[in-house]
């Protein structure tokens, strides 16, 4: 069947669809609040109906009927296979090696996909303090692969994060090995301007695609590190079916679709 691309969609919708497309059927997904929830719920309602959604607060393989506003939301309990707590999920599911794909976000993302969710400026006297790791550091360390979601602004994409809360490729191809993490690592960064992927050899982020209405040069201008745009093409737009499910089934209350991600 020919794909019918949607003509009208918002940036949030485009990003949710991009996140959903990173999930393959039958995968076990570690989802956080916001876009990862939209993406995994959309995936479960489209191409990846057998994907398993796991929330760090306890619920494993829930069938969401209402969008949760927290990973500990009572809504994550619906039709779950098991519901325990953080220690069980983090140790027996995540650290034991069962998470195929984990979603992450943060205040700063650097050229190697490291994430800062802790503070800007000196750690002891921070200019701005953020909520901290939560499960982000755990997901970054222990998932088989991760997808990062971020607002694309120059200050949010520095060469090096002020503080590494959640390790990406750390400082290059051998970074994770040296740190004692011979598995995992980020695969893509879905931003408000495009999708970044990591060079096989150097593990530095490059621009894989720019969203409709944005140019590759604009993405480069809005990135704090030197961004390779030579391989960039336009992001595949959402299909009409994806947008319909997103609006009617995933977030009809417009909790995240309206509000935007901060």
């Amino acid at each position: 069947m020919e794909k019918k691309y949607a003509k009208n969609f918002s940036l949030m919708e485009l990003m949710a669809v991009a996140a959903a497309r990173e999930i393959r059927d039958h995968e076990i997904v570690f989802a956080g609040t916001g876009l990862p929830m939209l993406g995994s719920m959309l995936a479960q309602n489209t191409h990846a109906q057998n994907c398993v959604i796991v929330f760090e607060a306890g619920a494993v393989d829930c069938k969401l009927a209402h969008l949760p506003m927290s990973v500990g939301d009572p809504r994550t309990m619906r039709m779950a296979s098991t519901a325990t707590g953080l220690f069980d999920v983090f140790s027996t599911v995540l650290q034991r090696g069962w998470i195929d794909v984990g979603f992450l976000s943060g205040a700063q993302i650097d050229a190697y996909g490291n994430i800062n969710a802790t503070c800007i400026g000196d750690y002891k006297k921070p200019k701005v303090r953020f909520p901290g790791s939560g499960g982000s550091g755990d997901i970054a360390c222990l998932s088989k692969r991760t997808i990062i979601i971020a607002v694309h602004e120059k200050r949010r994409f520095p060469e090096r994060c002020d503080y590494i809360t959640s390790p990406g490729w750390i400082d290059g191809p051998d970074g994770r090995n040296k740190a004692g993490l011979p598995w995992g690592g980020p695969e893509a960064i879905i931003t408000t301007m495009g999708v970044l992927k990591f060079d096989e050899k150097t593990k530095r982020a490059y621009l894989a695609s720019y969203h409709p209405g944005v140019t590759a040069e604009q993405v480069k201008e809005n990135t704090g590190f030197d961004l390779d745009i030579s391989r960039a093409e336009e992001t595949e737009p959402p299909t009409e079916a994806e947008i319909k499910i997103l609006r009617e089934k995933v977030d009809p209350e417009l909790i995240f679709l309206k509000k935007g991600e901060d």
């Binding site: 983090f90 140790s91 995540l94 650290q95 790791s133 982000s136 550091g137 222990l142 993490l181």
Partner: peptide, 30 residues
């Protein structure tokens, strides 16, 4: 600051009555 898994492991170790607990989490992190 620790990670969520870090903190719940510390607490679980306390509940088990042991002095520390080994983990892979937070490796490579500041």
């Amino acid at each position: 600051d620790y990670s969520n898994f870090g903190m719940v492991q510390r607490i679980a170790a306390g509940a088990m009555g042991i002095p520390f607990i080994p983990t892979y989490t937070m490796l490579g992190s500041d």
